[in-house]
Computed example of a mutant assay.
Amino acid sequence: MNAVLHVISDKHRHHLPLFDALVEAAKGGADVLQIREKKAPAQETYSQVRQLQQALSEERLSSRIFVNDRVDIAIATDIAGVHLAAKSLPTPVVDALRQQAGWSGQIGCSVHSLEEAQLAEQAGADYVTFGHIFASESHPGLPPRGVFALQRVVEALSIPVIAIGGIDQTNIDTVLATGCSGIAVIGAVLGAKNPRRAAAQLKSAIEKSKARPKVEFCALHN
Rank of each mutant, 00 (worst) to 15 (best):
S110R: 03
D69F: 07
D20F: 07
V7K: 06
H6M: 08
K87I: 09
I167R: 01
S209M: 07
G29D: 09
R64Q: 14
P143I: 03
P41K: 09
N2D: 12
E44S: 12
D95N: 14
Q51P: 00
G105T: 05
L56H: 08
L202N: 11
D126L: 07
L89T: 11
A163R: 07
G29S: 12
I73L: 04
A198D: 01
D69G: 05
R13W: 06
D31S: 13
V175N: 04
V94Y: 14
K11G: 00
V93R: 09
R98V: 03
G102F: 09
H12M: 06
K214Y: 09
S136N: 03
Q53T: 02
E137D: 11
E155V: 04
P160N: 11
A101D: 04
A123I: 10
N222L: 13
L220S: 10
I75W: 14
T91D: 03
A188P: 02
I35S: 03
V23C: 12
A86W: 09
I167C: 01
K87D: 15
L5I: 05
A40V: 10
A205N: 14
A96W: 10
L52R: 03
I133R: 04
D31Y: 10
Q106W: 12
G187C: 05
E37S: 09
E115V: 12
P144S: 12
F217N: 05
L176N: 04
V49K: 00
H15K: 11
F217A: 07
L220A: 10
A125T: 05
A205S: 15
S136K: 05
N194T: 10
H14F: 00
I159F: 06
A80H: 02
R196K: 15
G102K: 13
Q122L: 06
Q100Y: 11
H132T: 07
L176M: 10
T174P: 01
V154N: 08
I79S: 01
P92F: 10
Q54N: 14
I164S: 09
G124E: 12
Q51L: 11
L190P: 01
I206L: 08
L84Q: 06
L84V: 07
H112W: 05
I79G: 00
V7L: 08
L89I: 14
V93T: 13
A96M: 12
R152A: 12
M1K: 14
S138E: 07
A198C: 09
Q99G: 02
D168F: 06
V215G: 10
R212C: 06
V7C: 11
L157W: 02
Q34R: 07
A156P: 11
H6Q: 15
E24Q: 15
L84M: 06
R50I: 15
E24M: 11
R196Y: 06
I65W: 02
I75G: 07
N222G: 12
I35R: 01
W103M: 01
A188V: 05
A135C: 03
E207K: 15
Q106S: 14
F134L: 12
A125R: 00
D78Y: 07
T129F: 13
K203N: 08
D168L: 08
V7G: 02
I164F: 04
V189Y: 00
P17T: 08
E24L: 04
E58M: 11
V4N: 07
F19M: 09
E115T: 11
V128G: 00
F66D: 00
L202M: 12
V154K: 05
